[in-house]
Design a protein around this nucleic acid. Structure first.
Lengths: 119, 119
DNA sequence: CTAAACCTTCACGTTGACGTCAGAGTCAAG
DNA sequence: CTTGACTCTGACGTCAACGTGAAGGTTTAG
């Protein structure tokens, strides 16, 4: 498929797809005309990129992480344990934020329930 | 304390602290000279801001949830004057933020666990 | 008193992840 | 062959979250 179809199938703009290639995240084939040609593996790659970007990783970090995932089914290879640790650390940071917000919400709930002091 | 000490105590640059005020995240007192004056509540507020930023929330989102986050002994911040529907709305907004972060974390978990079809 | 350290408000610079537009080439359909 | 949709490569614009001086006022130690 060409860039337009990939854009429609992923919901990611053509500009963003070209940018990902520029950053080394995607390496589509090229027709003699210069047109980019993508396949289904690229579709899932783009989805993985989006998930990682939404999780707060930069394209530079994703460049390191992406090769450690098997192309077809998004599996982490066991050959990259360090990168797995990076992802775990990042998940833990998000967990920390969730904890903060949940504690806040719990305090709010007690206040709303009528108590003046929350613990 | 003044901005320099707050910066040292939080590890956040003075420029960033002024930026947070500009975005409505901090409201320090002012001396006649114009100097900003902070207290311990601002120290924990800055830490919360940093956690939420690191989790991928924007300052605009933090503006919505921060004013109703509760200080050390469960005291309401002065920026939550109305104890009725407003608090409930704020709690619900916090709930939305939690939901988004949990979705992000779930996606990360899927990738880390090597499961199929993240996204 | 002076000097160092600290603070103020502009205001332009930077980086990342794109948006947007220009000018030109490509390709399937009529 | 022509039209129109699609694509290409620059290259400048944007927005958030600051960095980095500039030019000057404030506070405190000596």
């Amino acid at each position: 498929m060409r860039i337009g179809e990939l854009s429609r199938r992923t919901g990611v703009s053509e500009r963003a797809l070209r940018y990902y290639e520029e950053q080394g995240l995607l390496r589509p084939e090229r027709r003699p005309s210069g047109y980019r040609v993508y396949n289904d593996a690229h579709v899932s790659a783009v989805r993985r990129i989006r998930v990682l970007l939404a999780a707060g990783l930069s394209t530079a970090q994703i460049v390191d992480v992406l090769p450690c995932m098997v192309d077809d089914n998004g599996l982490l290879t066991p050959s990259c344990p360090e990168l797995g640790d990076e992802l775990v650390k990042h998940r833990d940071r998000i967990g920390e934020a969730i904890g903060e917000l949940e504690a806040t919400r719990a305090n709010l709930d007690t206040i709303i329930a009528g108590d003046r002091r929350a613990g």
